[in-house]
Structures are given as structure tokens and as C-alpha cells.
């Protein structure tokens, strides 16, 4: 059993280790190690295409993680306050949303938005005052943010909901008992206690959005995110530069994920 587990882990992690290892390769071939160097990191960070893609990815990740965590927390609090079939239905839908494969979300969002834009664009053009070029809705950064927000909101709702149901109900009752209005209770008790979960949701969302290739591939239009850039350059061969980008993304993602985990753990302990 132990041997088997070890093999599985090796199988999972060796390729990642190899990428990290080769990112420090001094030579330019992906197959043989020729001494240690960090020059590929410098090269990647000086490549304007990489920096453009990075900027796009960061903006998308930041905006969609913010929307997802804020609206997700609001939805979670609202759902926590209701009972009965409405809640059951919403809970079900949220879990489904998280489990749907990225490719389905990508295609569905693409088809949905393209159809919508085809309907809307002539209407906008019709009511637009003459003399100016009417704006044209099309796939791009906004559609990517929208798609990521939708998907990540479900994730954030689940995280915050878990925190809310782990919270002792008597805490909000105690607050009400001590003359706090429902709004004051939310501000002074509920929000501080779910805040770590909201931040954790934000960090997880950020990583998911930053790493996402599949959804972005369908809905990003002409925008290039970092994963899309990596994908397109790999078709020209794997260079140590790509390895360096991969290693950096991995490092940042790991830090964010670990932070999120710590926040969730600590929040749980405090509410006991």
C-alpha cells in the first residue's frame, strides 16, 4: 500500500519537479542539464509578450476574485438566513456549478455571450446617435471576467457557507440579546467571524482564475492570458523560459493556497 501511494505521488510530482529543475538550467535545451542559472527568469520577465499576458491575467484574476468573494459572501449570508425548498434548490445548483467541467462552462459561456451580443449589437447601433462609431460588444477581457466570476462565486459561496454553519447560532442571539440591531450584529459579529473565509475564498478564486486555461481559451476573444501564452508558445517547443514562467506561477499559487488554508483553519479554531 505504501509503495503504491509513493508511486502515485512520484507520478504526480516528478513532472512538476522536472519543470522547476529545468527552469534553472543554464543551457537552452529542455532535455539536458547544463549547470545552474536564473537567466531564464530574467528573460521571461523581460519578454513584453509575457508581461502583457501576465498583466491581463492579473487584472482578470483580481477583478473576478474580488467580485466572486464579495458577491459570494453576500449570497452565502442570504442563503444562511432562509430555510426550506428555496435553500435546497440553491444549494444543489451551487454544488453543480462547482462540479461542471471547465470546458462545459467555457463553451456554454461562449455560445451564450455570442448569441446575446448578436442580438444586442444591432439594437445598440440602432439607438446610437449618428456621427459616432457605435460600440460593439464582443468577447474579451470583460467576458472572461464575467465567466470566471460566475464560476468562482459558487466556490466562494460554499466556503463562506461552511464557515457560517460552523458558527455557533447563539453568538448572533447573544448579540441581539445585548441590544444590537440585526445590521449591527452583522457588522460586529457575523462579518468579523466569516472574514477569514471571505479572504480565503478570494485567494482560492485568484489562483483558480490565474491558472485557468480552458475557460479563458473559449471566452477570452483576442486577449491573451498567461496560460494561453504558455500554451501557444509550447507549440513552438518547450524552452527553459516556459519552465521559468511555470515555476513562478506554481510558487505564487502555492503561497496563496497555503495562506487560504491557514486562514480557514484559524477561523475554525476561533469560533469554538
Amino acid at each position: 500500500m505504501r509503495v503504491y501511494a509513493t508511486l502515485v505521488y512520484l507520478f504526480l510530482y516528478i513532472p512538476i519537479g522536472v519543470i522547476a529543475l529545468f527552469s534553472f538550467n543554464a543551457g537552452r535545451h529542455a532535455s539536458q542539464l547544463q549547470g545552474f542559472s536564473i537567466k531564464w527568469y530574467g528573460k521571461a520577465l523581460n519578454n513584453p509578450f509575457v508581461m502583457d499576458a501576465l498583466e491581463t491575467s492579473l487584472i482578470v484574476a483580481l477583478v473576478s476574485a474580488t467580485f466572486a468573494s464579495v458577491f459570494g459572501a453576500m449570497a452565502a449570508v442570504a442563503l444562511h438566513g432562509i430555510k426550506g425548498p428555496v435553500r435546497t434548490i440553491f444549494d444543489g445548483l451551487i454544488y453543480v456549478a462547482v462540479m461542471i467541467p471547465g470546458i462545459v462552462i467555457g463553451i456554454a459561456t461562449l455560445i451564450g455571450l455570442v448569441t446575446l451580443f448578436d442580438q444586442l449589437n444591432p439594437m445598440i447601433a440602432a439607438i446610437w446617435p449618428g456621427g459616432f462609431e457605435p460600440p460593439k460588444l464582443q468577447m474579451g477581457m470583460l467576458s472572461l471576467i464575467a465567466a470566471h466570476t460566475m464560476f468562482l462565486m459558487a466556490l466562494c459561496i460554499i466556503i463562506v457557507r461552511a464557515r457560517l454553519s460552523g458558527m455557533d447560532r447563539s453568538l448572533t442571539e447573544a448579540s441581539a440579546d445585548l441590544y444590537a440591531t440585526p445590521m449591527a450584529t452583522f457588522r460586529q459579529v457575523t462579518l468579523p467571524l466569516i472574514f477569514p473565509a471571505i479572504v480565503a475564498g478570494f485567494l482560492l478564486s485568484f489562483t483558480f482564475s490565474f491558472d485557468d486555461f480552458i475557460i479563458a481559451f473559449f471566452v477570452a476573444g483576442s486577449e491573451t492570458t498567461l496560460p494561453i501564452y504558455v500554451f501557444s508558445s509550447i507549440r513552438r517547443g518547450v524552452t527553459p523560459e516556459i519552465n521559468a514562467i511555470g515555476t513562478m506561477v506554481l510558487g505564487v499559487s502555492l503561497v496563496l493556497l497555503v495562506t487560504a488554508q491557514i486562514l480557514l483553519r484559524r477561523g475554525e479554531k476561533k469560533s469554538r
Partner: peptide, 19 residues
């Protein structure tokens, strides 16, 4: 509502605010 009543309660598990 509870927050409008001039009555206070000590809860079984105290319900102190952990934060």
C-alpha cells in the same frame, strides 16, 4: 425582537464573542 427587550441572557455555553 430580542434587541428591543430590557432583558439579558447568560447562555449555556456562554456564547462569548471569540474575536
Amino acid at each position: 425582537e430580542a434587541h428591543r427587550r430590557p432583558v439579558n441572557m447568560v447562555f449555556q455555553h456562554y456564547a462569548l464573542f471569540p474575536h
